[in-house]
């Protein structure tokens, strides 16, 4: 192998793929690596929760109510005597699920709308973009609350609410990218050989807007986690006894002075998760954005 490479390289340096290039840049970005590690840890924690947590996250022990952190309860217990460490790990799985599914749902709808809007232009574009503007005019959380009010509280519905409220951001970004990509020669070429519209969108436009979508997706996961936590904090998301971070934070509100650990650790978990995804997203943007190459 070593030999063949040594032979090959000088003759024709293989054009390095854009993705590989981006990956190298990403690895050089310390903040992004830090974010990535946090994200990996949270994912690992969430997945491994059932195997590594010392306690059942919903098992109560009222006789051990509000205990401060100790070797038996690493992060202490809440008012119902439940182990906060176990609840946070289980909560990671819940928050990640909402984050990923919510962002993916928003992304899927947004990408389709953006592709259609940008590709066809005209009246279609006009209608879609005005709808998007209307939705953007609502403050995000308020919109999510309104959606929950209509479809009812619960984790599944939070995913839907978070998804819907992510749609306009994706639509705009995708439409913008499509507008620039569709001017390029390979699109014109595809059109010339008679490729149908759906094929152009699917095979020529979509792969070329993937980079910004990926960046946005990462960022939106952070927003989705935060929004879901806010909804649960307000009692509209996860229902008891689900160990959701926002709900746990809300439980700890009344004990801020007396037992600060009840609110602090779920709060830190939310902070870390959001920070992790944002740093990773920033890093991805820097790595994928061609303008940064200069």
């Amino acid at each position: 192998m070593a030999i063949s490479e040594a032979v090959e390289t000088p003759i024709a340096a293989r054009p390095r793929s854009l993705w590989r290039d981006a990956w190298t840049r990403l690895l050089r970005n310390r903040a992004a690596i830090f974010g990535g590690i946090i994200v990996l840890l949270i994912i690992a924690g969430g997945l491994a929760a059932p195997f590594i947590t010392p306690y059942d996250p919903i098992k109560q022990n009222l006789r051990a109510s509000l205990q401060p952190p100790s070797p038996t309860h690493l992060l202490g217990t809440d008012v119902h005597g439940r182990d906060i460490f176990s609840r946070i790990l289980y909560g990671a799985a819940i928050s990640l699920r909402i984050g990923f599914l919510g962002a993916l749902l928003g992304g899927a709808i947004g990408v389709v709308l953006g592709l259609v809007s940008g590709f066809y232009g005209g009246a279609v574009d006009m209608i879609i973009m005005r709808l998007v503007d209307i939705q953007l005019a609502f403050p995000g959380l308020l919109l999510a609350i309104a959606i929950i009010a209509v479809i009812g509280p619960g984790l599944e519905n939070v995913i839907i609410a978070v998804g819907i409220f992510s749609v306009p951001t994706f639509t705009r970004v995708v439409r913008g990218s499509v507008l620039s990509v569709k001017q390029q020669d390979f699109v014109t070429a595809a059109r010339t050989v008679g490729a149908p519209n759906h094929r152009i969108m699917r095979l020529h436009l979509f792969p070329n807007i993937l980079a910004p979508v990926l960046v946005l997706l990462t960022m939106r996961i952070a927003t989705a986690i935060l929004t879901a936590a806010s909804l649960s904090f307000l009692g509209l998301g996860a229902q008891p006894p689900t160990p959701e971070w926002g709900a746990m934070l809300s439980d700890g509100r009344d004990y801020l002075v007396l037992a600060p650990h009840v609110a602090t650790f779920p709060g830190l978990a939310i902070l870390l998760a959001v920070l992790g995804f944002n740093l990773l997203g920033d890093g991805l943007r820097d790595a994928l954005d061609p303008r940064m190459r200069i």
Partner: peptide
Amino acid sequence: STEAKQVAVALQGQLKEVGFDVEV
């Protein structure tokens, strides 16, 4: 209210022990 919710969750946890799956 905070207190009512806390009581309800405590009841939920205890009723589970006797096979009652309670939605609060």
